[in-house]
Write a protein that binds this DNA or RNA. Structure first.
Length: 427
RNA sequence: GGAGGGAUGGCUGAGUGGUCGAAAGCGCACGACUCGAAAUCGUGUUAACCCUCACGGGUUACGAGGGUUCGAAUCCCUCUCCCUCCGCCA
């Protein structure tokens, strides 16, 4: 959510941003109009309250002095003021609510380095990494390989849960665990604090960190408590300091989170989403930073560097893409994606998303830090380190051998008793 | 699940119907002392919002919501969270 002062003092910046995104200005103008009316109504109500407070001070005196008539006169006046105040108060409240629910929908201001573009075709190449292997055979897609090796059981998962759920079995499940441990070790080694969050959140906290549309399409709602299962540990870790004033000495706060991630994936998806590429549940190791505003752009690059060095160490081929204006979501100001090469599919596909959300989440969450000038919103940043299901797909496709097995990345081998090859599961 | 206690500013914590936005301490900021620092002393320091070019002024907020009252941090109700004890359980 953008600061209300942005609408009051720099509406032109928001308008220019909407132009970049190809959005109309209606919402901006409506926020400004509602805010204007709210201020006037609010002021009128405050003035009436002031009169009531002044009048009420006379009551005790009149009572003490035994002046019953005067007391009655004041009581009548105060009662009538009270009615007016209540009416104005309701009006002001409605306007403020309307203003803010609209304000919640206005997206973050894009960073100047975000490339222009109408959709994902406008994303620009930032850098290429690793070696694109040549195969002496026709590389297979991961869903064929996991099937041949009995590493994934989709039909039985569908039977007991539903489509897009899976059982991970045998060596592939072991490598999933190895990936988790490796990624956590990698980032704790760089000063990030390992945190395991709750995997369910309440609505209020969740509204602070996500696009409101996600409540209908992304998160599961758990009854009877009404909790939402998290779509990523970014959400609990970012909301962790909701409603708090943080000490500047804590910043930047760097965390590495791990959690299962739950996604409803409402809507149809294409043929390429076979196997375990797009699933309702997966494990993700996530980087989170809460920082002072002046540090966030450097830290955004640090997050990307961490990703690049982590994925390089897995010896995978991928590209880093700078997400363009038309493909950016509501919350991020700038976003890099890592797209891994899938030789079976013959395409680069998204495996990591690295965002600077500036003060957008912090404003909603009322997360501030102390400065000598007062309290200011912090900045929040997040980046995937490894989403295990998708990292597995990339490893399976890139490291496949002619006989349909998969070589284990060197850095993961110590976590798997120095095994070199993933063996098939025999059932 | 049962019984009891609690939630106050950045933190600890006093305050049980009006002069309380709220004692005190810590922390923080500024100043003095010092070559510099520590210690010490002095001054200041809740936040959000509104009006004002400014000086300044106003409103609201003591977990959240509702109620009683002319008036609520203080009394009543509901909810949330925390603590203690009992029960159950990974």
């Amino acid at each position: 959510m953008l600061d209300i002062n942005m609408f009051r003092e720099h509406a032109d910046i928001i308008r220019a941003d909407h132009d970049k995104r190809g959005l109309p200005h209606d919402q901006i103008e409506e926020v400004i109009r509602l805010d204007d009316n709210w201020k006037k109504t609010r002021y009128d109500a405050d003035q009436l309250r002031r009169r009531r407070n002044e009048a009420a001070r006379g009551i005790a005196e009149a009572k003490k002095a035994g002046n019953n008539d005067e007391m009655q006169r004041i009581l009548t006046e105060v009662a009538s003021l009270g009615e007016q105040i209540d009416a104005l108060g309701v009006e002001a409240n409605d306007m403020e609510n309307a203003r803010d629910s609209l304000r919640m929908k206005v997206p973050n201001i894009l960073h100047e380095s975000v490339p222009m573009g109408g959709n994902e075709d406008g994303n620009t190449l930032h850098s290429k990494h690793g070696i694109k292997k040549e195969y002496s055979f026709e590389p297979k897609t991961h869903n064929i390989l996991v099937d041949q090796n009995n590493w994934v059981d989709l039909p039985r998962a569908a039977k007991i849960a539903g489509s897009r759920f899976y059982f991970l079995k045998g060596d592939l499940a072991r490598m999933e665990l190895a990936l988790q441990q490796y990624a956590v070790d990698f980032l704790t080694g760089r000063g990030y604090t390992f945190v395991q969050p709750p995997v369910m959140m309440n609505r209020t906290a969740y509204e602070g960190v996500t696009d409101l549309g996600d409540f209908e399409t992304v998160m599961y709602n758990v009854q009877p408590e009404g909790f939402y299962t998290i779509a990523t540990s970014e959400h609990p870790l970012t909301a962790m300091f909701m409603d708090e004033v943080m000490e500047p000495s804590m910043l930047p706060l760097k965390m590495v989170g791990i959690s299962p991630c739950f996604r409803r994936e409402v809507g149809a998806h294409g043929q390429s989403d076979k196997g375990i590429w797009r699933v309702h549940q997966f494990t993700k190791i996530e980087q989170i930073i809460i920082s002072k505003p002046e540090d966030s752009w450097n830290l955004h690059e640090e997050l990307l560097t961490n990703c690049v060095e982590l994925w390089d160490s897995l010896n995978l081929h991928y590209e880093v893409v700078n997400i363009c204006t038309g493909d950016m979501g509501t919350v991020a100001s700038k976003k890099y994606d890592l797209e891994a090469w899938l030789p079976g599919v013959g395409a680069y596909k998204e495996v990591v998303s690295c965002s600077n959300c500036t003060d957008y989440q912090a404003n909603r969450l009322k997360m501030r830090y102390r400065t000598s000038e007062g309290n200011e919103s912090v900045h929040t940043l997040n980046s995937t380190a490894v989403a295990t299901s998708r990292a597995l797909v990339a490893i399976i496709e890139q490291n496949q051998t002619e006989d349909g097995k998969v070589e284990i990345p060197k850095v993961l081998q110590p976590y798997m008793q120095n095994q070199k090859i993933l063996e098939s599961c025999n059932w």
